[in-house]
Amino acid sequence: MHSDGIEVIRRVLISPSFLVGAIVTLCFVVIATVTLFWTPQSWIDIDIANKLARPSLAHPFGTDHFGRDVLSMLMKGSHNSIVVALVAVGIGVGLGVPLGLVAASRRGWIDEIVMRAADFTFAFPALLSAVMITALAGPGAVNSIIAIGIFNVPVFARLTRGAALVVLTQDYIAAARLAGRREIRIAIEHLLPNIASVLIVQMTIQFALAILAEAGLSYLGLGTQPPNPSWGKMLNEAQTMIYIAPHLVIFPGVTIAIAVLGLNLLGDGLRDALDPRLRRAR
């Protein structure tokens, strides 16, 4: 077990996708943390005299139609993306993992209901439903979190169930049952640690998808509301000025793409390192 752990760490460290993904993700976390205390300019103060300025030393990414510093808005916008994605994935894990564990250990009709519900949610365009929910329940960060979060639940329920079913056939589970352990304890002590790696990989990928979905919703005006900046909304505003200030289109999009790319690479790298199939074929 010990040398296995070392082997995983070694393979993770030599995987280029993991390295690039981890560095990019770490950069975003550091920048978001710094933003809590400091941004190069104010992200909220309006400076009409200086509106739609091209990139310069004072404003490396230029200014928007209110003269606000784009770099600072992007930095501040990272909070929005991170919070929305974090809570949405949290909802998915918090509800989906227990559902999957229950479905796997109880089987029977509970299993059937959970899985059919998951099938149905999958067949339904997630963004379409998110648009409906946020539009009818009212736009805003909280509703967009819920809308994105709901569609993470079946993802994690299915994944947990599948992984747990494999683990449940192992001998040590039978041993624990014979020893009179209760199902819940077995699930927490034996199942969770064994499926944690699969869950972590999926969490990074869902995190990336949540950032994309949030950007889409706030682009449509259904996500975070002013004055808080969000990457999607910045793109929405930039589009109306595409002829006069094309630079406004570039930076938010690049930011979203790099953040999502970093998370996806991180997830891919982790999966390659943790995939038991690869581990056997060393």
Binding site: L212, Y219, L235, I242, V249, G253, I256, A257, L261, N264
Partner: peptide, 22 residues
């Protein structure tokens, strides 16, 4: 392919507008 997945399609749409329309 990795980059293609990471790019939001509405942003890519704007880039297309920028290049091919504007």
């Amino acid at each position: 392919a990795q980059i293609g997945i990471a790019i939001p399609n509405f942003w890519f749409a704007m880039l297309l507008i920028l290049v091919f329309a504007v």
